[in-house]
C-alpha cells in the first residue's frame, strides 16, 4: 500500500514537470504570436532592425542572433586551449593522481561562481585591461563579454572532455606504446581521435551554456541594438536584450522580446540535442 502511494507520488511529480515544461513553452508561444503574426516568423528572424520609436516602430531578431553567435563562438574559441589543457592534465597526464583531483575541484569551483560575480569582475577588472590594450574606448563589447564567458564555460567544457579522454581504453594506449610511440604521439594519434566525438559534444554543451548566459553578458556587452561590426564592437545577445529591456516593454515590443526568448530556447534545445546525440553514439561504441 505504502509502495503504491509512493509510486503514485513519483508519477504525479513526473507529470507535473511535464506540464510545467509544456506550460512554459505554451506561454512563450502564445505571447510571441503577436510579433510573429505581425511580421511573419521568418521576416522577424532575419530583420536586423530594432526600432522602438513609436513613429517607426519595427522589431527584428537578427542583430541579437548575430550578437549571440559572435559572443558564444568567440568565447568557445577562447576557452578551447584552456579547457583542453585541463582535460589533458586531468584525463591523461595526471589521471587518477592527487594533483588532478585538486585541479578538478578548483575548476569545478569556477562553475559555482554566480554569474553576477563574473559580471562584476569583468566590469572592474577585465574592462580596464581591455581599454589599456586599446581594443575599444569604453571596454564594453563582444570582446569583453567573450573573455568572461570563456572563463565561465571552461569547467563545462573541461570536465566532460576529461571524462571522455580518461575513458580511452588502456589496452589501446599500451598497444600504441608497444609500437614505440611517445606520449605525445599516443595522445595525438590514439587518445584524441578515440575520444574526439565526446570532446566535440562537450564543447557543444559548453556552447549551449554560452548562448544562454545572461547576467554577466548584459553587464559587459554594451547593449546596442544593431548588428555588431566585429569583435571590438558593442552589441546585445538574445538573452541580454531581454534582460535589458523587458522591464519597460509592452505591446509589440514585449511580444518581440518574448519571441526572441522562444527562439533562444529553440536554438539552445537543438544544440543540446545534437550534443546528446553525439554522446549517445559515442557510448554505443
Amino acid at each position: 500500500m505504502k509502495d503504491k502511494i509512493f509510486r503514485f507520488l513519483l508519477f504525479l511529480a513526473a507529470v507535473l514537470i511535464l506540464l510545467l515544461t509544456a506550460g512554459i513553452v505554451y506561454a512563450l508561444v502564445s505571447r510571441s504570436t503577436e510579433a510573429f503574426g505581425e511580421y511573419g516568423i521568418w521576416s522577424f528572424i532575419v530583420n536586423p532592425e530594432w526600432d522602438p520609436r513609436p513613429a517607426t516602430e519595427e522589431y527584428g531578431a537578427m542583430s541579437f542572433i548575430l550578437g549571440t553567435l559572435y559572443t558564444a563562438f568567440f568565447a568557445l574559441f577562447l576557452c578551447i586551449p584552456f579547457s583542453f589543457s585541463v582535460a589533458l592534465f586531468n584525463g591523461e597526464y595526471f589521471k587518477g593522481m592527487k594533483i588532478s583531483s585538486a585541479v578538478r575541484s578548483v575548476v569545478d569551483l569556477l562553475a559555482g561562481i554566480p554569474s553576477i560575480v563574473y559580471g562584476l569582475w569583468g566590469f572592474y577588472t577585465i574592462r580596464p585591461l581591455i581599454i589599456d590594450l586599446g581594443i575599444n574606448a569604453q571596454g564594453f563589447g563582444i570582446f569583453l563579454s567573450s573573455v568572461v564567458l570563456a572563463i565561465m564555460i571552461i569547467p563545462y567544457a573541461s570536465s566532460l572532455s576529461t571524462e571522455f579522454l580518461s575513458m580511452v581504453p588502456n589496452n589501446l594506449k599500451e598497444g600504441a606504446y608497444s609500437l614505440g610511440a611517445t606520449r605525445i604521439e599516443v595522445i595525438r594519434h590514439i587518445s584524441i581521435p578515440s575520444s574526439l566525438p565526446g570532446i566535440v559534444a562537450s564543447y557543444i554543451l559548453a556552447l549551449g551554456r554560452a548562448l544562454g548566459e545572461t547576467m554577466a553578458v548584459t553587464m559587459l556587452i554594451g547593449n546596442t541594438d544593431r548588428i555588431p561590426q566585429g569583435l571590438r564592437d558593442t552589441g546585445n545577445t538574445m538573452a541580454s536584450v531581454i534582460a535589458n529591456q523587458f522591464g519597460e516593454a509592452d505591446g509589440f515590443k514585449l511580444s518581440s522580446l518574448i519571441a526572441i526568448g522562444l527562439l533562444l530556447f529553440v536554438i539552445t534545445a537543438i544544440i543540446n540535442m545534437i550534443a546528446k546525440l553525439i554522446m549517445k553514439r559515442v557510448s554505443r561504441l
Partner: peptide
C-alpha cells in the same frame, strides 16, 4: 596482447 586491440579509429 591478450585482448585484440586494433586501433578503432
Amino acid at each position: 596482447f591478450q585482448q585484440p586491440n586494433p586501433f578503432p579509429t
